[in-house]
Design a protein around this nucleic acid. Structure first.
Lengths: 189, 189
DNA sequence: GTCTATAACGCGATAGAC
DNA sequence: GTCTATCGCGTTATAGAC
């Protein structure tokens, strides 16, 4: 079943605080105060603090996997696929910059779903790497170490959550096209 | 005066734990246990927990400022300067991957020195951006949004602390030259 | 320099009134 | 659905013995 509106509100408020101070430094009292209620009242909507973090991280991770699978299965060129991945990151991050902070920095505080998260992350990186390797075989991409290329591009994409809120005036589509130019011309032959 | 060996040992052990779980989730008991002593004993060497974090972050931030100032004042081409900056990051990060995690993720928990840190960070980014702009004026670098180029390169360099420990077999010099190829060919005309 | 003991406080979470 | 009150435990940090 899908979360109630009130639960989603808690998750949204918590995301904002988690981005500012990190999951561990945010207390249930902080979250409650930001919502104008008492900490005990939060437990009518959520099981515990961990559940909030789990929801934030797992739903984002699954959104990325889903998006990447569509890209993988398309019949586009490798360059087109990479541009689609860049747009995927800009798109998801623009809609949830706060959650992206937890996805990047707070995943190690997952308990029940830590293993699940790690599987998703490895799966994502493997699929991404395969697309790069496909480009190398196609002669679309320079024959350099694919791990370094993956690391370089993914580091930039994973940091978008810090940068996008500082550039609210920039259109996501424009950002994606500028990023594609910068990231890909370092890869294209 | 410079810190005693025992104090440096505490800072080193704490850095490792801060990288694994983040500053807020690491307790003084965790640090003490990792050193084989009791938490109370730590206070013979350090003032409080915050002092450990402050030392880790400020000394790294100053090392970066110092390194960047040397690059800025050199008479190299812009491309050469950027390669030197990449080497600077690879070098500092290779020597202290644990501390780099705190520099990236725990700076908001600084108290006394938070403002100082923020000044250093802005100063670093401004100097870096000026070098990029210089390259645009020199026709060495594509005339794209310098903020996006700065963000893209710096995001990758700031994420090196995650990646370097996974690739211990890779020579820092080789990593720096591969990164220069990938990062700069997306900028060079 | 490390220890035990403890102060002073904040934490996540629960019970039960309304 | 929110509240007050509270439990049980963990937190940083200090005092004082050795």
């Amino acid at each position: 079943m899908s979360p109630s509106p009130r639960k989603l509100e808690i998750i949204s408020v918590a995301s904002t605080l988690f981005k500012e101070k990190g999951y561990s430094a945010v207390t249930m009292r902080d979250i409650a105060k930001a919502m104008g209620i008492k900490a005990a009242s939060l437990y009518n909507h959520i099981k515990n603090k961990e559940e909030i973090l789990t929801f934030i991280i797992i739903s984002l991770a699954e959104e990325f996997i889903e998006g990447l699978d569509k890209v993988k299965d398309s019949k586009a060129t490798c360059e087109e696929k990479l541009k689609q991945i860049i747009s995927l990151h800009v798109d998801i991050t623009s809609r949830n910059t706060n959650g992206m902070a937890s996805l990047n920095n707070d995943w190690m505080h997952l308990k029940d779903q830590l293993d699940h998260y790690l599987v998703l992350r490895v799966e994502y990186e493997n699929t991404f790497r395969d697309i790069i390797k496909e480009g190398i075989n196609n002669n679309e991409i320079k024959n350099l170490n694919p791990d370094i290329m993956l690391f370089s591009i993914l580091s930039t994409l994973r940091s978008l959550y810090i940068w996008i809120p500082q550039k609210e005036d920039m259109e996501p589509a424009l950002l994606a096209s500028n990023l594609s130019e910068i990231l890909l011309k370092g890869i294209n032959k």
